[in-house]
Amino acid sequence: MNLKYASPVVNTIMLSNVTDLTAVLSSMAAEGIAVTLASLPASAPTHANTPAASASTSST
């Protein structure tokens, strides 16, 4: 990949992630689930209590 295209590709991926997360959070709020600024860090895939974070930090 040519370096001049790296930034637009990364920006597109980030925009896609923001769009997906916004849709999920809106859906949760519509279902009556409280979505607060304090609860958002827990939704990150790298949060300590998620399976993905546990798998990346555990030694096999």
Rank of each mutant, 00 (worst) to 15 (best):
Met28His: 03
Ala6Asp: 09
Ser43Asp: 09
Ala30His: 07
Leu21Trp: 13
Thr46Tyr: 04
Ser7Cys: 09
Leu21Phe: 15
Asn17Ile: 08
Pro41Met: 02
Ala48Glu: 09
Asn2Glu: 03
Leu25Pro: 01
Met14His: 09
Ala55Val: 15
Ser58Lys: 14
Ala53Ile: 05
Pro8Trp: 00
Leu25Gly: 04
Ser58Gln: 14
Val18Cys: 09
Asn11Leu: 15
Thr60Val: 12
Thr12Asn: 14
Ala48Trp: 06
Ser26Met: 00
Ser59Phe: 01
Ser16Arg: 10
Val9Tyr: 03
Ile33Trp: 03
Pro45Trp: 00
Thr60Ser: 13
Ala29Lys: 12
Ala52Asp: 09
His47Lys: 12
Thr36Met: 10
Val18Gln: 11
Ser26Trp: 01
Ile33Asp: 06
Val9Glu: 06
Gly32His: 11
Glu31Met: 08
Leu21Asn: 14
Val10Lys: 13
Pro8Ile: 02
Asn11Ile: 06
Thr36Gln: 11
Ala38Asp: 14
Val35Met: 09
Ala29Val: 01
Leu40His: 00
Met28Trp: 07
Ala30Leu: 13
Thr22Lys: 09
Ser59Trp: 01
Asn2Thr: 01
Thr36Tyr: 07
Tyr5Thr: 12
Ala29Gln: 12
Ser54Ile: 05
Met28Gln: 05
Ala30Asn: 13
Met1His: 10
Ser16Thr: 14
Val24Glu: 13
Ser56Lys: 08
Ala42Phe: 03
Asn11Met: 13
Leu37Val: 10
